[in-house]
């Protein structure tokens, strides 16, 4: 898959699992990083707390998954090595999670799209034969359900609130809609792990996701976007331009002191 993966662990099935754990971990880590940018900037104090809560849940998932990925890789990398010392091309998160926060409506739209996907994913992953992934999913499913409820309630309030909030919410779903097909792309890694009962083939989650989103749009009086363009490449390490800035900010301090422990 990606060229940089060293073969420290000689178990042939460890490598796809490493890639898979890394993907899930990167999605959670990068979305947590984006959400944490809201601290002290949210529209209400309650929302400052809620957005930080969601970010903390995702960061917790990311740490468990990256730590596990490091173990599977067997090259001695820990969660911090994976978070702070990889370059843009080595991150495998989807484009949706790296998109800028925008206004509150954009953050909510991103959260609605992602949490609906993640909830469906974790509901399946609970039955993974991989104990650690099943454990992350068991804890994460409750968190994702809360994130999804939060995003759903706000999408409805904003969509069916004032003219201004309706306009902003509609603009947000249109802006982020092209980043949703990537959530459901599967490749050999996904399919092989799904066949083994370890992972979930994301393409199988799409119809459930679409149904749930359509219901929310309808309650929120929002029109489903009609866009033809969509964005792809995150799983292969090809990201959108804004991603480099996110990493620069996240990694600069850790990289500035290479011998340091924190």
């Amino acid at each position: 898959m990606t060229a940089k993966i060293s073969a420290g662990n000689t178990d042939p099935m460890a490598r796809p699992r490493f890639i898979y754990a890394l993907r899930l971990g990167d999605d959670a880590l990068i979305l947590a990083q984006r959400l944490s940018e809201w601290a002290s900037r949210a529209p209400e104090i309650e929302e400052d707390i809620a957005l930080t809560n969601i970010a903390l849940d995702l960061l917790g998932q990311a740490r468990a998954l990256l730590d596990y990925a490091g173990t599977l890789e067997g090259a001695g990398r820990d969660e911090d090595d994976l978070a702070y010392l990889r370059t843009e091309r080595e991150f495998t998160n989807v484009h949706l999670v790296e998109q800028e926060n925008g206004d509150f409506a954009h953050t909510i739209a991103r959260q609605l799209f992602f949490s609906t996907y993640q909830l469906a994913l974790y509901e399946e992953l609970i039955s993974s034969t991989d104990e650690l992934l099943a454990g992350v999913a068991a804890k994460g499913v409750k968190e994702a359900a809360y994130h999804n409820d939060h995003a759903t309630q706000w999408t409805i309030r904003l969509g069916d609130g004032t003219d201004e909030s309706h306009r902003r919410m509609q603009a947000a779903i249109e802006r982020l809609w092209p980043f949703t097909p990537e959530l459901f792309e599967s490749d050999d890694v996904d399919r092989a792990l799904a066949a083994e009962g370890v992972g979930v083939d994301p393409s199988t989650l799409r119809s459930r996701w679409a149904l749930s989103i359509a219901e929310v749009f309808s309650s929120a009086t929002l029109e489903a976007p009609q866009t033809t363009w969509s964005s792809h490449g995150g799983r292969r390490g090809v990201h959108t331009e804004g991603f480099g800035y996110l990493l620069a900010e996240m990694q600069y301090l850790h990289r500035s002191y290479p011998d340091a422990k924190w």
Partner: peptide
């Protein structure tokens, strides 16, 4: 300093603190 915290553990603790 949340977005620039030097380790994931420190980031989590700082987020919880600001919260």
């Amino acid at each position: 300093w949340i977005t620039r915290a030097p380790s994931l553990k420190r980031k989590a603790i700082l987020m919880a603190k600001v919260q």
